[in-house]
């Protein structure tokens, strides 16, 4: 069995929507990786956001996908807290949250900053704008993650057994081809940066299979219309200037050193965790759902006993069934016939 992993949740979604797994040659598997921002966020972070939302004069602003994710108990979610009267606002961009804060200076606005390198520059741009405009009632609960340490943690796990990676095109737009060279160079693993159209994914899978067959691991970029060798210099400069690497807890992968971004220097004043005295644990509580194994490619969604039975998009037990980038939601919504 050749086990290929698509790291990115958007790939997972595109693969499910086009039904590509049905068309794979026998003996080839595509597994989801730790690239869905909501899915890798540990339940303790959801609890922390819920507790923030319960504070008076504080509004939590979040992307829609975070609303339904349960925390350490199924009753703890931002959507349920909102229905109980907490101030939770769905936003499409951190800039929306910043605008709300500017219009309503008597209220604190905390943006739940989830996402990978793709989302980091936009979140940081909002913090920078807050500093320039001197908006002090805005802050970001930093849940931004780096993909490379997660992939390294995954590869350190002997159970993962991955033969090649379909690398995330959107992340690569920011960090460039160079961000994925470590895969062939240090791990001797095939790696192909791919776009998101079915034809992009097909072409990339074909190249991965060629590399596996010919034992020719290398980094190939099939998404050259968007991804350059060096990435986006403006975005990278912003990340370099405003952040420092930080350790963070991941669902499924545990605590990983250097896998997150902390706001640096004077920008730390906009860090909600510092501002409101929140610290996340280094260990995650055990959960009934097996999302942690799904995002490490150890099981497929259907391998979870709850999948499609007690866990559905209407009543999700874990984040993978919630997010449109989640492996279980994609597998359930776009189930094959």
């Amino acid at each position: 069995m050749i086990r290929l992993m698509e790291i990115c949740g958007t790939h997972t979604h595109a693969i499910a929507r086009a039904g590509l797994k049905q068309l794979l040659p026998e003996g080839v598997k595509l597994l989801s990786g730790p690239g869905c921002p909501v899915c890798v966020t540990p339940p303790e972070a959801i609890d922390a956001l819920v507790s923030l939302a319960r504070r008076p004069h504080l509004t939590v602003c979040t992307y829609g996908d975070m609303l339904r994710v349960p925390g350490t108990s199924p009753e703890l979610s931002l959507l349920k807290e909102k229905a109980r009267g907490a101030r939770v606002e769905m936003v499409f961009s951190p800039m929306d949250a910043l605008s709300m804060a500017e219009r309503d200076p008597g209220q604190e606005y905390v943006f739940a900053g989830v996402g990978f390198e793709t989302t980091a520059p936009g979140t940081l741009a909002a913090v920078k704008a807050a500093r320039v405009k001197n908006v002090s009632n805005f802050s970001v609960f930093m849940l931004l993650r780096r993909i490379e340490p997660a992939v390294r943690a995954l590869l350190a796990d002997s159970e993962s057994r991955i033969d090649g990676f379909l690398c995330p095109g959107h992340v690569a737009v920011i960090i460039g081809e160079k961000g994925f060279r470590f895969l062939p160079e240090e791990y001797r693993l095939p790696a192909v940066i791919s776009g998101f159209e079915p034809a992009d994914i097909w072409l990339s899978v074909k190249e991965l299979l060629r590399q596996v067959r010919e034992k020719d691991p290398r980094l190939v970029n099939t998404y050259t219309r968007a991804v350059s060798p060096e990435g986006n210099p403006l975005a990278l400069a912003l990340m370099e200037e405003m952040t420092r690497p930080d350790g963070a807890l991941w669902r499924g992968l545990g605590y990983i050193e250097g896998s997150a971004y902390a706001l640096n220097g004077e920008y730390a004043a906009w860090d909600a965790a510092i501002k409101f005295g929140i610290s996340l644990p280094r260990q995650t509580a055990p959960t009934a759902c097996r999302c942690g194994e799904v995002i490490c490619g150890k099981i497929e969604p259907a391998g979870c006993p709850f999948f499609g039975k007690v866990c559905t998009p209407e009543a999700p037990l874990g984040p993978c069934m919630v997010s449109s980038e989640g492996s279980c939601a994609a597998a359930w919504t776009y189930r094959s016939f």
């Binding site: 979604h13 992307y63 609303l67 769905m90 989830v114 997010s323 189930r335 016939f337």
Partner: peptide
């Protein structure tokens, strides 16, 4: 694949 009923509101990806 199956076409299934919408579960809740659709949100843009992150």
């Amino acid at each position: 694949r199956l076409l299934t009923a919408l579960a809740g509101a659709q949100f843009p990806r992150i």
